[in-house]
């Protein structure tokens, strides 16, 4: 869900194949068990808003 709309529907096993940037952003922001990361990526909401406009144009 992004901005109150379902943007993508996928099964939990298929998260790797997510294509919408919002879904991909969420997945990227999850910590990983086997990785030592200095910082977690966070969602760029401004970029997502632009994608939303283009996606509907």
């Amino acid at each position: 869900m992004f901005n109150g709309e379902v943007v993508e529907e996928i099964g939990p096993g298929a998260l790797h194949a997510a294509t919408h940037p919002y879904t991909r952003g969420l997945i990227a922001s999850l910590p990983r068990l086997d990785e030592d990361r200095a910082e977690l990526p966070v969602l760029d909401r401004a970029a997502l808003a632009r994608f939303g406009q283009e996606g509907r144009a």
Partner: peptide
Amino acid sequence: LDVSVQAEILNLLK
């Protein structure tokens, strides 16, 4: 928290 907000708070704590 949802996962993207969780990431922000985890970064802050670190």
